[in-house]
């Protein structure tokens, strides 16, 4: 690893000021599970590393029935995975968090890091997409909020500008008749990166489903919503035929690449399979 200067600011303002001051030469350190590996490989060689760990307000989870869920960006994935309200109401997110690496990695890795890294394969991305997350972003100049759909620009690229830091994720409140699920295609049971990740969320409405959202990971330059499939399903009951059509629509909306993990064809096919399965599961959970 190359050497670097290490900072541990205690406020977001100070962290942002450091990021701006060392523009292009500084990296934010959250859990470190991506950054430290890249630094060891010298694919990242920051001269300044700014740890966010000492900023207290970044680590809370709060929920109330009015304003919904707020997850501080430094929340550990292991905490998300085990949180009872997230498991019950935001199931896909608990599952997505629990799919990252193994227990030891999830004790380090944070949701802010998982998302800010900009990986199209991030396991929390598809769940946040279907849970309607808003990304809270702060800098020395103030704060802004970006819907998660607009956060990603391409592999490793996000809307974050110089000096900006993701501080939290906010999801609207969810009722007992909403359900969600995340499934990923992998080889190993744990410790695998997503070949394909699909999350679905649905609300149960007298035999039909509504507010359907489908999120796809690792099948396009960014995580994305399968909006065509969503539109087909909303307001309808989930018949096998409709599920197949939705699965096909989700596949069609994906634009995967072939790489050493698998082919684009396989990814596209798995988008269909997992869209169908997660929709079914989400609807079942919504019905209780």
């Amino acid at each position: 690893m190359r050497n670097f200067e290490f900072f541990e600011p205690t406020t977001i303002e100070d962290a942002s000021a450091l990021l701006t001051k060392y523009n292009g030469k500084a990296k934010l350190l959250a859990g470190g599970t991506d950054l430290i590996i890249e630094m060891k490989a010298r694919t990242a060689t920051p001269e300044y590393v700014i740890s966010l760990e000492k900023i207290p307000e970044l680590a809370d989870i709060t929920y109330d029935e009015e304003s919904g869920l707020r997850i501080g960006a430094l929340t550990k994935l292991r905490t998300l995975e085990k949180d009872s309200i997230i498991r019950e109401r935001y199931t896909a997110l608990a599952e997505g968090a629990g799919e990252v690496g193994g227990v030891q990695i999830r004790h380090l890795a944070t949701i802010g890091g998982n998302i800010s890294h900009g990986s199209p394969a991030a396991d929390t991305a598809a769940p946040l997409l279907v849970l309607g997350a808003q990304v809270r972003i702060a800098s020395a100049d103030g704060e802004r909020t970006v819907p998660i759909e607009l956060f990603f620009l391409g592999p490793g690229q996000t809307v974050l500008e110089t000096g900006e830091i993701v501080t939290a994720f906010e999801c609207p409140p969810r009722s007992a008749n909403e359900g969600s699920q995340y499934i990923k295609q992998k080889i190993r049971e744990v410790m695998d990166l997503a070949f394909v990740g699909v999350a679905s969320s649905a609300k149960s409405d007298n035999g039909t489903v509504s507010e359907v959202k489908i999120g796809l990971a690792a099948v396009a330059p960014t995580p994305l919503r399968a909006t065509d499939a969503e539109a087909m399903i909303n307001g309808n009951s989930l018949t096998p035929e409709l599920l197949e059509q939705a699965a096909a629509a989700a596949s069609a909306q994906s634009s995967p690449i072939s790489d050493l993990r698998c082919s684009a064809e396989h990814r596209r096919e798995m988008v269909g399979v997992l869209t169908r399965r997660t929709l079914q599961a989400a609807a079942a959970l919504a019905q209780g």
Binding site: G102, I187, R188, E189, M191, D192, L193, L260, R261
Partner: peptide, 10 residues
Amino acid sequence: VDYRVPTSAD
């Protein structure tokens, strides 16, 4: 990551 050896979960 991409050279996978099994874990106890498999």
